[in-house]
Design a protein around this nucleic acid. Sequence first.
DNA 1: GACAAAACGGAGCGGCGCTCCGGATACTAA
DNA 2: TTAGTATCCGGAGCGCCGCTCCGTTTTGTC
Lengths: 198, 198
Amino acid sequence: MATESPAGASPARGKRADAQRNRQTVLAAAADVFATSGVDAPIRQIAARAGVGMATIYRHFPTRADLVTAVYRHQIEACAEAGPNLLASADSPFEALRQWVDLFVDFLVTKHGLADALQSDSDRFAALHAYFLDRLLPVCAHLLDAAVEAGDIRPGMQPYELMRGIGNLCIGRDNDPRYDPRRLIALLLQGLQRPHAS
Amino acid sequence: MATESPAGASPARGKRADAQRNRQTVLAAAADVFATSGVDAPIRQIAARAGVGMATIYRHFPTRADLVTAVYRHQIEACAEAGPNLLASADSPFEALRQWVDLFVDFLVTKHGLADALQSDSDRFAALHAYFLDRLLPVCAHLLDAAVEAGDIRPGMQPYELMRGIGNLCIGRDNDPRYDPRRLIALLLQGLQRPHAS
DNA sequence: GACAAAACGGAGCGGCGCTCCGGATACTAA
DNA sequence: TTAGTATCCGGAGCGCCGCTCCGTTTTGTC
């Protein structure tokens, strides 16, 4: 499955030893810097943190999106894999959807500027956007379909629109007590529910 | 009312004639450039368009937010003033709220990158954020209160959270048929409605 | 140990935000 | 009209950033 993934996964096979080492070093440094300065942090800063030249970073991760993707790959995968599990364990498909959305939101909110980057109209992050969609859209679609089929929500909601809406709501300064994306997203999901008395 | 407004309104009184002329020239150029290149367009570009030095722009509009505010001031005011009118003319307070939100969304969506700027965590736009809030938050609060009092929606929604949520949903590339912020916002408002059968 | 392929590092280029200051310009008073 | 001055203008210049190019170093192989 993961012998030779396409977008900068871990193409360590066949690479020189120092290249592999540097790749890991850069990844660790980027994770640190992203956590403190956000995913928009200057490449120079990451390079300095890693004790490495800038060209090395660009060589391993041609686009900023590639670097961000690589740093958060595991968590995105975990989120994707949680979908089917939740569907099996939750009381209802709608409850599964709600829990999955919570997972997704928690992920986005705890990463400085990740949600911003996801919706940025700058094409610097296009690959990141694409990766999120490729990986998470099918999961979301599956959950939505299940909820529709169970009669929990009414049909018509497009997965893409829902995911972008959720992502958008997570944009902004963190830790503002006046704004909690979770409350609005809960409202959104509630608006999605099929009225019980119709 | 508007004899001497605080944040760069039209402090033309007492200024030299050329300064007033340049102010208008810059405003017109900025409106053009914003429309084509978005509100993040380089200051140099606006200066060139206006046939003016950069320092002239910074002198009249110290912050980018001041320039953006000045360019869109009339439309923001119109949106603010529409609130009470809609409340008087609509069939119900909730309907007035819905129409006002539509107005607000139309305004945001038709301005390249305005919504993005509003929620940007960069403090370059802090003043813009503040101006929107100062001007529109009371209107939104009034509409919300009226709708709550009429029993249209349930209480508890904070105006600030609603406005930021709407603003956030408007972020992103324009003219994507797969994503229409209006649909999600309609869903949000629907989730806000008091269930008719309790 | 020698050799070539692979990888590295940082100087350098263009673009941008913002400031600084010598020069031009518009008002005022005589 | 003219002289004088406060006001305003313009763009060179500084620092920061993304990204690339190329001389140098490291690694693996024979």
